[in-house]
């Protein structure tokens, strides 16, 4: 008992380094972003596409335009709120698709026959060699601009990241004695994998998914910035930055900075939450052992 107490305390101190304030802040910020995206029509003071050349390039804080206007006089706040929808939904789709694919690939590699592991693991190694963004651009080149092609391409590109994590976690979890004891009870490998292994991996998967969401958000914003993602009249945060480029040259960067900072804060918040999830996974794992 006396031995474990200092050890416990040391661990707690280490975990609290990324304080709860940051995690709570991140959660609150993300909640606000999600509410903004859902309730954009209610919250936005203007239509996101309403132009007014007389009011173009107003600085943030101007009367009637809280975050200013862009070079065609569109209200930046309204565009930010509406843009949140695609900016969040598209990476969400990528994360869901790559998680489902990655889990399938990882579990088969970890628990299936040896040849399947060889095949899948080597395929993932090769897939790692292609930068995901490059793959997405290639997809755009082949299938044309728009969100669908890069989303599919990114989903495939992220699958090996998820797959490799799932494989190593499943191998580790599969070596626990309880897995053998269920086999002894006459349960098939598939049953034990889906009913016992997968639920036990879920927390780690959630952490992984949060990190992937951040990457996907940046990648998709990058594509939109390059004009390869969202097509006008639709817009997301990436295309807002792209459209603000002429204004930056005129020395009025506000309409680019606002969506840029939003992307940055969202990604940081998602990563903080993901890291927090990951550390609580480690904690429950230690308690179980």
């Amino acid at each position: 008992m006396t031995l474990t107490v200092p050890a416990l305390r040391a661990r707690r101190v280490r975990r609290n380094r990324r304080g709860p304030v940051a995690v709570v802040g991140a959660a609150v910020f993300l909640a606000v972003v999600v509410v903004a995206a859902v309730a954009a029509p209610l919250l936005a003071p203007y239509s996101p596409d309403a132009t007014s050349l007389l009011d173009s390039l107003l600085p943030p804080g101007s009367p009637g335009h809280l975050l200013g206007t862009d070079s065609t006089g569109r209200d930046v706040l309204s565009r930010l709120l509406y843009g949140a929808r695609l900016s969040l939904l598209a990476p969400l789709g990528v994360v869901l698709a790559s998680t489902v694919l990655g889990v399938a690939v990882g579990l088969v590699a970890a628990r299936g026959p040896r040849w399947a592991d060889l095949l899948l693991s080597r395929t993932m190694d090769i897939a790692f060699a292609f930068p995901s963004l490059l793959l997405a651009m290639l997809a755009v080149a082949v299938f044309g601009a728009g969100l669908a092609a890069p989303m599919v391409a990114l989903s495939i590109a992220y699958t090996p990241f998820v797959g490799r994590v799932v494989r190593s976690l499943a191998v580790q979890e599969g070596s626990r004695a309880y897995v053998e004891s269920y086999a002894v009870m006459g349960f098939s490998t598939t049953w034990v994998t889906l009913r016992h292994l997968l639920p036990n991996l879920a927390p780690a998967l959630a952490a992984q998914a949060a990190l992937a969401f951040g990457y996907a958000l940046i990648d998709l914003a990058t594509l939109s910035f390059l004009g390869l993602g969202v097509r006008p009249p639709e817009s997301d945060w990436g295309s807002m930055i792209a459209q603000a480029q002429p204004a930056i040259l005129q020395g009025l960067p506000a309409s680019a900075i606002v969506p840029g900072v939003t992307v940055l804060l969202t990604v940081i918040a998602v990563n903080l939450l993901g890291e927090h999830l990951g550390s609580s996974v480690g904690r429950t794992d230690r308690e179980r052992a």
Binding site: R176, Y178, R288
Partner: peptide
């Protein structure tokens, strides 16, 4: 394994899904 024979392991903690 389901019906005819059953096994009890050394460490109960390790033989059930925690």
């Amino acid at each position: 394994r389901r019906h005819t024979a059953a096994m009890v392991f050394q460490d109960p903690r390790a033989s059930v899904n925690g």
